[in-house]
Simulated assay, not measured.
Amino acid sequence: MSTTIIDDLGHTTIAGWYTRLADNPCPRRNHWQTKIIYYEAVAELLAGRPERPLTWKTIVGAARPRGCRSTFYEVTGVRARHAMVGELIAEGSMRSIEIAMRYQRPDPVEQLIDETKVWSFWPYRQHFAERARDPGDSPEPVLPSLREALLAWAGLHPALAAANSYRPPACAVEDLALLHRGRLAATRAESRLTEVLRHAR
């Protein structure tokens, strides 16, 4: 695996979105902390009662220390601040636009679930990226290790993994398409990883 491709894992559009928000040092202007409140609420609701449909009201009710309608719609929906899909569209490459089109949803709850998947999967993604950076790794283990990371995450978060029809975390789709050096469209990458999650049960 070339150094360029491995380094690119640290500079994908979604990695840039995630780290820019998560690394904000100013607590009073840290929108990421508000997002995390709602990500945690979604993850907990799905884990506790996966058969119960999520609504903005149930998510707001589960958000701690206190959720409200206004902050919910700051985090998700068409007017959300710092939305992942908006970042992909703004980046403007064919791959980013393709991923954005797959993850752009009219339902703010589904959009929030998609972002929650990225947040929840991120530690697994970073472990995968660090393994890929190891110069001792040959190219062959890198792609299977992404699959292993996805399965490890799904094993601990089965309801979240199954939500939104098993759609994978968008960062995994971006990584898989990147690692194929343009030979795999993002739509195909999304389809492949969806099947991985669907058969992980």
Rank of each mutant, 00 (worst) to 15 (best):
W32H: 12
R198A: 05
D107L: 11
S70T: 15
A22N: 09
A129H: 04
P158E: 03
W32N: 11
P27V: 15
Y124V: 00
G67C: 10
G67K: 02
N164L: 04
E174C: 05
P27N: 10
W122G: 05
G77F: 10
T194C: 12
R131S: 09
T12R: 10
S2F: 03
K57S: 12
A162I: 06
L197H: 08
E140Y: 08
C171R: 02
V142F: 06
A172H: 01
D8Q: 07
C171F: 03
T13W: 05
T55Q: 05
M101K: 14
L112A: 13
V78G: 12
Y124T: 05
G155Y: 09
P106C: 04
V42M: 05
T58W: 02
P144V: 00
V173H: 11
W32K: 10
S96E: 08
M84D: 01
K35W: 02
V60C: 11
L88G: 00
A43W: 06
S191K: 15
L45S: 03
Q126G: 04
R188N: 09
A90K: 14
Q33G: 04
I59F: 06
L143Q: 11
T34Q: 11
R167H: 14
R20I: 01
Q126W: 11
A149H: 06
I97A: 12
S145C: 01
A154F: 09
I89Y: 15
L45D: 06
D175V: 08
L156R: 07
E74Y: 01
T4R: 11
E44R: 15
S96K: 01
P135C: 01
I14H: 11
P106H: 07
S138H: 01
P53Y: 13
A90S: 01
S93T: 15
E98V: 10
V109L: 12
E115R: 12
M84V: 07
E51C: 08
T3C: 00
T71G: 03
E91N: 02
S145T: 03
W17K: 12
R183I: 01
W122D: 04
S2H: 01
C68Y: 14
I113R: 05
P168R: 05
S191M: 11
R192G: 07
H180R: 13
E98F: 06
G182L: 14
N30M: 08
A159T: 11
A162W: 05
I37W: 14
Y73W: 11
I6E: 07
W17D: 00
R167A: 04
A172K: 01
E40H: 08
Y124H: 15
R201G: 12
A129K: 02
P168Q: 07
P50C: 09
Y103P: 02
G61F: 02
A90L: 02
G92E: 14
F121W: 13
E190F: 03
T71L: 10
W119T: 08
M101I: 06
P123F: 06
V85Q: 11
L143K: 14
Y103N: 09
S120L: 12
P169D: 00
R69Q: 08
R69E: 14
A149G: 07
T71S: 14
V142A: 05
P168W: 09
H199Q: 02
L88T: 08
E140F: 11
H199D: 00
A163C: 01
T4F: 06
H157K: 08
E195K: 04
